[in-house]
Each structure stands twice: as C-alpha cells, then as structure tokens.
C-alpha cells in the first residue's frame, strides 16, 4: 500500500499551511476554523495549535457535520447511511473569516454541502478552504486556498487519510479500488 505521506511530512505540511494562513490574513482576530467531520476536525485543531505557537493567539475552532446537507442522501437507498454526528460551532460566524478544513478535496460536493450549512449559521465575511490533500477530479467549481499536498489520482483509486486522534497513526495512502 503506497504511503504518500507519513507522520513527519503531514506535520510539516500543516505547519506550512499554518504559516501561510498567518501570512495571508492580516487580522488574526477575525479568523475562525471550522473542521468538516470527521477528519477535518483534528486537522483544524492542529492548525489552531500551530497558529497559537506562531502568533500566541488561539483561533476559535468548531466542528461541522455535513451529513444532513449532502446531495446524495435521499437519492440512493443502497448502502448504509453515514452516522450523523453533532455539529458544534460555539461562536458566531457573522463577519468572521472562516477557514473551512477537510482532509481530502475530491469532487467538491462535501465542500458545497459545508458552504450550504455555514450559510445557515450566519453571514461570514469570507470563507477560505484548507485541505490536507487535493486529489483532483472536481465536479463543481471549487478550489482550495491552502493545500497540504497535490496528489493526482485516477478515478479507480481512493485516498485514505488516517490521523492519530482518530485512527492511532498519521498517514496518507493511495489505494486501488474503493475505500471499504
């Protein structure tokens, strides 16, 4: 199983992203991180930790479950539905510059759902997208603002991200066939 990123590289990629965020956003105060469940959440938390190291301030972090906004939910009734988990955004997103965080950017549909959800929470000043891996094959006009690694893949492949907080190890792997 080809591992394209191990713990080390992931750590460095996230630190680089955190620096980029600080560089491009003059006002840290207006920033807020929203991780898309499930693996976007620990990534967002790590970025918040990194930024605190860099500028000494903690960006508020929230977790967003987009299950109820998916466009494919009620369409096919084959296969199990994903488990619904809680959304927790303990701050107002009005006038904030939101950093939406996910592990893998693929078709863009997850991000579309997340944008729909965020809009129901308030009116942010702007939304930027942070992803650990961009594997291409967009089906919607969505682009990431911060990318850990660009990873060209074929449609027959899948990208598996594991993180210490959830899976016990940090790794990005490219697998043949669908993720089970």
């Amino acid at each position: 199983m080809p591992t394209v990123m191990e713990a080390d590289r992931i750590g460095r990629a996230l630190m680089r992203i955190s620096h980029e965020i600080v560089e491009r956003n003059r006002s840290i105060d207006a920033l807020a991180l929203v991780g898309i469940r499930t693996r976007g959440v620990p990534i967002a938390e790590r970025i918040a930790g990194n930024v605190e190291e860099i500028v000494g301030r903690l960006i508020p972090t929230g977790a967003l479950d987009i299950t109820l906004y998916r466009d494919d939910l009620m369409r096919h009734t084959v296969g199990p539905q994903p488990v619904l988990r809680e959304t927790a955004i303990p701050f107002s997103i009005d006038d904030r510059r939101i950093l939406l965080v996910d592990d893998v950017l693929y078709t863009g549909r997850t991000v579309r759902a997340a944008l729909d959800a965020l809009v129901d929470f308030g009116r942010p000043e702007s939304i930027q997208l942070v992803v650990l891996v961009d594997r291409g094959h967009r089906e919607l006009p969505i682009k990431a603002d911060y990318v850990g690694k660009n990873l060209p893949t074929s449609l027959a492949q899948s990208v598996q991200v594991t993180l210490v907080e959830i899976d016990g190890t940090d790794a990005v792997k490219v697998l043949e066939g669908a993720l089970t």
Binding site: D65, L68, Y69, L73, M74, V83, L84, R85, E86, T87, A88, D116, A117, D120, F121, G122
Partner: peptide, 24 residues
C-alpha cells in the same frame, strides 16, 4: 441506540439561528 445517537446530533439544529437543514 442509533435513533438516540442521531437524536443527540439533531438537538444542535434547534440551537442555530436558522433551525433548518435541507435533508427532507
């Protein structure tokens, strides 16, 4: 348990400014 877990997650929607999701 599945229903209770899902209900727990649904509770949060009632705390949002827009208490709606497009699911159904």
């Amino acid at each position: 348990l599945l229903i209770l877990d899902t209900a727990q997650a649904m509770k949060e929607i009632g705390t949002r400014p827009i208490k709606k999701v497009p699911t159904l």
